[in-house]
Structure formats: C-alpha cells, structure tokens
Amino acid sequence: MIVPEGILCSKSHEYLLEKENGSYNVGLTDYAVEQLGDIVFIELPEAGSHFTKGEVFATVESVKAASEIYMPVTGRIIEVNEKLVESPEILNDSPYADGWLVKIEADDAQADSGDLLEYNDYKEEIE
C-alpha cells in the first residue's frame, strides 16, 4: 500500500489530498477500508453540490454495515468517482490511487484543516 505524501486524515478516517490549485481528492484511509472489509455499495453526491465540513456527503456499505462519510473540509464537489458505483471493490484494492471518492474545490482548506492529522500522527492516534 503506497500512501501518498502530504495527505491529511480526519479522526473519522477520511483523507484529503491536495491535487492542484485548490482542488483536493477526498477518500477513505487504508485503515478505514481494511476495517470495513468487502465494500459492496457506494453512494456518492452530485457534482456541483456543496458540503460543510463535518456533513455527510457519501455512504459506503460493506457486507456487514452502512457507514456515513463526512466532509473533512468545506467545499464544492467538482467530480465524483463514477467507477466506484459499478465497481465498489476498487475502494478495497486502491483507496488512494483509484478509489478516491470525490474531487472538491475547498472554500478555505487552510482554515478548515486545523484538526486534520498527518498520516503518521493519524496512524498513532488510531493504534
């Protein structure tokens, strides 16, 4: 598992990965995906919709249960990963490279990311 450099993680296991000029990938950490087990269903928001930090923007269901996914920072959805709808197992196989959930344009990532952790600190926190 290659964890991309510079990701920021929430304690509810979402990650934020800066791409270019204020756009970010939002997904679930490898730890979260491992805990969920086989993912069989993903419900994603509409592109264009706007979510506040902490709001539920997606649902990921494993064989056992449905989990709500929270926005790590406030922003607008600019793209959703449609491939996941047909093949939710991509999220198990590749949570960072191919299994990102949405791309967002953050309103003010700087201000919103104060409580997000660098990957190593996040790992320490959950262990």
């Binding site: 087990g37 086989d38 069989v40 494993s62 064989v63 056992k64």
Partner: peptide, 20 residues
C-alpha cells in the same frame, strides 16, 4: 481473524474477506 462480540461471545467475523 477480526473479532466481534456476538451473543455475549468474542467470535471471528471474518479471517480474510466475507465474500471470499
């Protein structure tokens, strides 16, 4: 195995993958 509580018991819910 991943262990869960079931009916008062610590039981394996899965070893590798539920689907497999």
């Amino acid at each position: 195995a991943k262990i869960v509580e079931f009916g008062g018991w610590d039981m394996p819910v899965q070893y590798t993958s539920i689907i497999a």
